[in-house]
């Protein structure tokens, strides 16, 4: 069999749709392969597990050359919503779950969800602001303890 990965700790640090999905897909995929997986949300990545915000995650249309939009056009009012709608429709056709549904599913797979203490302090968030599936708000030291012996992925 050769080398196998037994455990992954995935950090999600961005609050845009394209910043959040890759980490979620990697965590879900790790569990599907039988690996242990933990997700750690820091800085704007916390929006993915924020009760009031996780249903309103948007694609970044400014400063995103991958969209092949003129920079000025990306900044027009409503552009981010339009692009998000467009992508969400495409994802639905491919049966890719929405972010809230995906996170609930990942929690059901047994992966751990954690918020970053420094970021929660900075944004004045408490565990009550975060969705129920979040196990705890932890420090960077606790994160490293939890990640010991596995792979760490920063997104």
């Amino acid at each position: 069999m050769g080398d196998t990965i037994e455990k992954v700790s995935i950090i999600i640090s961005k609050g845009s749709l394209e910043g959040i999905y890759p980490g979620l897909i990697m965590a879900n995929g790790a569990r599907a392969e039988g690996m242990e997986a933990n997700l750690f949300f820091t800085f704007f990545g916390l929006d993915a597990i924020h009760k009031k915000r996780h249903e309103h995650i948007k694609v970044a249309t400014v400063g995103n050359p991958g969209l092949h939009l003129a920079t000025m056009a990306g900044g027009l009012p409503g552009m981010s919503s339009v692009m998000t709608h467009y992508l969400e429709r495409k994802m639905e056709k491919l049966d890719i779950p929405s972010i809230p549904e995906f996170i609930e599913m990942i929690s059901d797979t047994g992966a751990g969800l954690y918020g970053c203490k420094a970021s929660c302090d900075l944004f004045e968030m408490t565990k009550d602001d975060l969705i129920d599936q979040v196990k705890d708000i932890i420090t960077v030291g606790e994160f490293y303890e939890m990640a010991a012996g596995g792979q760490i992925i920063f997104t």
């Binding site: 879900n28 569990r31 599907a32 049966d95 059901d108 797979t109």
Partner: peptide, 13 residues
Amino acid sequence: VRVLGKTSGVSIK
């Protein structure tokens, strides 16, 4: 797993 959870009648958990 996602399809199994949605269609097999057995939850993901």
